[in-house]
């Protein structure tokens, strides 16, 4: 497996918010990418936004500025 590093994870209640996060981040240079939702957050399926922990503030701000519905903000080793 890959070496784990500290990450910030934003989870969303609907896929459309995750896709909106990706679109907004691409347009505004926000770091991160979409990944499958870790089971530690939810055993369900779905996707979330993952970025280095050092970018937490920028990622949370982007979600706010984009008007997204966010289910949770998590820090974990991934």
């Amino acid at each position: 497996m890959r070496k784990r590093e500290p990450r910030v994870i934003l989870s969303f209640p609907a896929t459309v918010d995750a896709m909106s996060m990706e679109s907004y981040s691409a347009a505004h240079g926000v770091p991160g990418r979409l990944i499958p939702l870790p089971t530690a957050i939810s055993a369900g399926c779905g996707m979330c936004w993952c970025a280095p922990i050092t970018d937490r503030e920028a990622v949370e701000r982007a979600a706010r500025d984009a008007g997204l519905r966010v289910s949770g903000v998590h820090e974990m080793m991934l």
Partner: peptide
């Protein structure tokens, strides 16, 4: 099936899902 909130017994409340 919606791809999200899979363990919820009910349909997600959020649009458009």
């Amino acid at each position: 099936g919606t791809g999200v909130q899979s363990y919820s017994p009910t349909q997600p409340a959020e649009y458009p899902t």
